[in-house]
Nucleic acid binder design. Structure first.
Lengths: 230, 230
DNA sequence: TGACAAATATGATTTATATCATAGTCAATT
DNA sequence: AATTGACTATGATATAAATCATATTTGTCA
């Protein structure tokens, strides 16, 4: 981890967007830019909460471990996304780990100042409340998927999420640099099964993969797989 | 569904506890007591949000369906619990169904008044934000459990949750009237597997069941099952 | 009080998915 | 240029858990 100066324009994160204009200079004085190298752990499950972070550059995975070597990835965070917010519950212990997937730059805001911001900006508290409400909906949808949907549906859901999150270039390739292992850990399955399912989808003409690239040829049919099992 | 008058004392729910004293008369004027019979649906997935509800009496299950006949139960709600809050996200469509498991009495607050309450009571918004943060932590923990923990661990987790939620009487019996089917749907498994796992736990001396009753003989060992798989 | 539906109980069978094993490929580092 | 380690690829095998099948018991209401 390295501290550096390269401030953002105070306009893209949840904190800045929902604070009063007069509050921005205070934010500016209370933030800190941090850099992390690929594979570096930003914070880890079980440790004390220090504050919240906003991703300025790079990709971060938010994950939860289980009995050595097994993990479920909850979220891939990118520019503009907030992380560390999961710890603002009753106990101040982080329930998740955040790991940099490439070179990552974060804007860090310590908890005391963040709490002060909540007290001083009602609309920030309201926005955060709505933010959590959406996150909860999403989490519970995924809960149901993990419990009841088959792997193929979860893989399809994962691919659609990736395309939505990372976007596609002119040729249709999803612009990302994740390993199959990480995609599998998001879908809640093993690398091998994820791999086989990709092959299956390829043979059905729903996706295309040459080398590292991944192209969704038929997002509609993929979406259908996420609705009801056949 | 039936409307009736039997007001609570305006003190036990999240809304009342976190609103200014002067706001309580307004709450009183904007609430409505509703009764539901066993198995009656209170609100269902896909419909428009009407407002939030506070359970005054009885037990409600909050569940999400999947391809006919399959469901995951997200929560059992009891006296004092709020339900319907999951819909306060960006789209105003309910992502879950709520069904009465016995005779249920609810206090209903329509959305416009609830939003007004949030605007008028900063501490209510803050409390709701924290409430969501906790719910999200819990949901993501269960996500990981559903994805990576084996059935035995999830059954143990379910039993501990039930004891915590419903309490036990002098003889140690958990005071509830749920079907095995509903417990299984909370654990994210089928009735048969849930039943077999109960037998297994019984033969290991961790629980005891005579007829309908369920007694946890060794909560410590049950909790160990929820930590790491053996 | 009897009848019918719902819930419980259990064995047998199937299946989806994880695990194991092994090899090939690529990218980084010495 | 060579070596290492991470990632990808794929077949073979094992297994946890779902599904199917069928009694039995219990509760409900007509």
């Amino acid at each position: 981890m390295k501290t550096n100066k390269m401030p953002c324009d105070l306009s893209s994160c949840l904190l800045c967007k929902n604070s009063l204009a007069g509050w921005l200079p205070l934010i500016d004085g209370n933030r800190q830019m941090l850099s992390f190298k690929k594979k570096e752990v930003i914070f880890s499950e079980g440790s004390q909460v220090a504050g919240v972070y906003f991703v300025y550059e790079g990709t971060v995975k938010i994950h939860k471990a289980w009995s050595q070597q097994k993990e479920l990835i909850l979220q891939f965070a990118r520019k503009g996304d907030m992380i560390g917010y999961r710890a603002l519950g009753n106990d101040q212990i982080l329930p998740i780990t955040a790991t940099a997937l490439d070179e990552v730059t974060l804007c860090f805001v310590a908890l005391p100042f963040f709490e002060l911001s909540l007290q001083s900006n009602h609309s920030l508290t309201y926005a955060l409340m709505r933010f959590y409400a959406n996150a909860l909906q999403e989490a519970e949808k995924r809960m149901r998927n993990l419990a009841l949907m088959d792997v193929k549906g979860r893989v399809a859901e994962t691919l659609l999420m990736l395309q939505h999150k990372f976007g596609a270039d002119e040729t249709g390739q999803i612009v990302m640099n994740l390993t199959r292992q990480d995609m599998a850990a998001y879908a809640g399955t093993t690398y091998e099964t994820f791999f086989r399912t990709l092959n299956e989808l390829k043979s059905e003409g729903l996706i295309q993969q040459t080398d590292k690239s991944l192209i969704l040829l038929n997002a509609g049919k993929l979406a259908m797989l996420t609705h009801t099992d056949p």
